[in-house]
Simulated scan of single mutants.
Amino acid sequence: MTRQFPPATADEREMLTGWLDRQRATVRLKCTGLSEEQAELAVLPASPRMTVKPWWGTSGMSNWGGSRPASSVSKL
């Protein structure tokens, strides 16, 4: 099985399907020879550190898109 890069000069759809085909071929290549049991195993154990915290819930972004207080506006 060979993995091919999509053509360097292609339209958006052809480029996207080319990269998806390459990704599919990569997964097939990496999974070749695995038993059904091995294929179903989790690669890494679950960890609370692997959870994603939304950026809009952080205190630093609480005023995202809102108006700034006058004291924070720089003077020219």
Rank of each mutant, 00 (worst) to 15 (best):
M61P: 00
G57Q: 08
A39V: 03
T32A: 15
A25S: 10
E40T: 03
Q38F: 07
K53H: 05
G60S: 12
L34C: 06
E36P: 10
R49E: 10
D21C: 01
D21K: 06
G18H: 02
L20N: 13
T26H: 08
T58M: 07
E37V: 05
E40I: 01
P54R: 12
V52L: 13
P54N: 10
W19Y: 14
Q38Y: 06
R22L: 15
A42L: 12
D21R: 12
A39H: 09
A42E: 07
P45V: 01
D21V: 05
S47H: 01
P45E: 08
E36H: 15
Q38A: 12
E37G: 03
K30L: 13
P45H: 03
E37W: 09
L29P: 00
W55Y: 08
M50P: 00
D21M: 10
G33C: 04
R24K: 15
L16W: 09
L16M: 13
T51E: 06
G60H: 07
R49P: 00
M61Y: 12
L41T: 04
V52N: 05
V27W: 06
A25M: 02
T17N: 13
T26I: 14
T51N: 08
S59R: 04
K53E: 03
G60T: 11
P48C: 02
W56R: 08
E36Q: 14
A46I: 00
A25G: 15
L34T: 02
C31L: 12
T26N: 13
L34Y: 07
A42N: 10
G60K: 10
W56E: 05
P45W: 03
L16T: 12
V27T: 07
Q38W: 06
M50A: 14
L29K: 14
T17C: 11
A39K: 15
G60F: 07
P48H: 04
V43G: 11
G33K: 05
V52S: 06
V43W: 08
Q38K: 12
P48K: 02
V52G: 04
T32R: 14
S35I: 02
V52R: 05
R49D: 02
S47D: 13
R22E: 14
